[in-house]
Design a protein around this nucleic acid. Structure first.
Lengths: 238, 238
DNA sequence: CGCTTGATTGACGGGCCTCAAAAAATGTGG
DNA sequence: CCACATTTTTTGAGGCCCGTCAATCAAGCG
């Protein structure tokens, strides 16, 4: 309905380069090695098990990474947004990465010798940022109800994409379910419940307006002191 | 009852230095900076929120790291064993670390300038190993029943401590519950169920014998091709 | 328009949490 | 070494949340 309000902070997540949401910002000039590659929505970037350990800086778009268990079950590791680095592997891809939107990726140098002076520091920063993100995601899964998980995810993903009250979700409900450790129907029910509570509004299933951030944060059990700068280490830590 | 059988591969987890269970082995000589510190069981090593970003190499013992949410709920991030590095933080401690057994810790240098040539590579290796571990732990929490989670944890923790069929669990049931995202009673029931199925045997609540590794792996949905060398990337990947 | 895909909603059963109590393990002092 | 108190673990009963099966609805597409 009214999803073109100029109320959010940054440009859309798909509009191009963007500063990192919070935490240590990566250097403006990342040690890129090779030409940028583009993928359309739905394309697989690399597959679990195949050779390759090139790190890929996600410059625009959203990438979903997932692992398939031996029983066929899928677990969505994370949803990477612009500024994130995907493909942090050694020798072999531990997960499958696919594009949820049109994406632009820049390969990064992987050995400290070839990337100039600050390459090692840069890579360490990337690893620590990824580690902190994964820890947040882990805390999100533990001992929370479906509504709590969805509320927490909306706040976290909104913060990561730079949008305060208008969150765009390029992933399907099933993707979200496999990420939050729930069933697809349960995710849908959680959205409906948040909708009935007037905490969110839905233009369509992929465009969420956060009407009551405080109530959502209360549900999620997170601190909602959102700050655009690097002052906030993590919304999931008291 | 019969918990002194010499059937396991390595020495006990508390007996001193030990090779890493699998994955990339850390260099024999870690860039240690400062004197080793000892903590008795139950002591807090550092607390969430306090200043400090020194990495600590765990040389012996088991360390539990946890984060406290804003609602007071506790999430146990991981159980670090000998060879692991704890305290990978930037500026502030993101989690609380406490000793589950008597532990010995060595502080590591944190800037690439002061640790000699391979310090940066070493730290990157540590970060990637920690990242992979956390991903396994994340996959463990997603969409598994209580028995499946406990079975997976027993196999993983046993592999990490170097014990094949005799796993020593220094943590309480409540600690385990907060790690696996379940209630304490549910953990206890899962153990009882595995006991009734004759998949495990309990000398006492902290000493588990894995009688049917294949059945446990089948329950957990993991590949149980345990290899002592680095050939196995992760038991949770197909 | 008919087909396909994705999202939503309902009914029902099972697994896990909560409340409660008993049993076992652990620690302490005599 | 034993008795006692404390903590931890185990087990039971009941209820709620979520997964499964199923049907309906909306949207995109040839």
């Amino acid at each position: 309905m009214d999803r073109s309000e100029p109320e959010d902070r940054g440009a859309g997540a798909l509009d191009g380069h963007r500063a990192l949401p919070f935490g240590k910002r990566l250097p403006v000039r990342a040690p890129v090695n090779g030409r940028r590659r583009h993928f359309d929505a739905g394309m697989v970037i690399y597959s679990q098990g195949e050779d390759g350990d090139a790190w890929l800086l996600l410059e625009a778009g959203v990438v979903m990474t997932c692992r398939y268990g031996i029983d066929g079950h899928r677990h969505v590791t994370r949803f990477a947004v612009a500024g994130d680095v995907v493909g942090i592997d050694v020798g072999m891809r531990a997960e499958t990465a696919s594009a949820l939107t049109p994406v632009m990726l820049s390969p990064l140098v992987c050995d400290s010798g070839g990337g100039g002076e600050g390459a090692a520091d840069f890579m360490q920063m990337v690893l620590q940022k990824t580690l902190a993100e994964l820890q947040d995601s882990q805390a999100l899964l533990a001992r929370r109800t479906a509504v709590e998980r969805v509320a927490a995810f909306l706040l976290l993903f909104g913060a990561r994409t730079g949008h305060i009250s208008h969150v765009e979700l390029p992933m399907s409900r099933a993707d979200l379910a496999d990420h939050l450790g729930l069933g697809m129907h349960t995710i849908s029910r959680a959205f409906s419940q948040l909708l009935r509570s007037r905490f969110i509004a839905l233009a369509d299933p992929h465009h969420v307006r956060l009407l009551q951030r405080g109530q959502l944060a209360n549900l999620a059990g997170v601190d909602d002191d959102f700050r655009g700068d690097g002052g906030l280490r993590s919304p999931l830590v008291a």
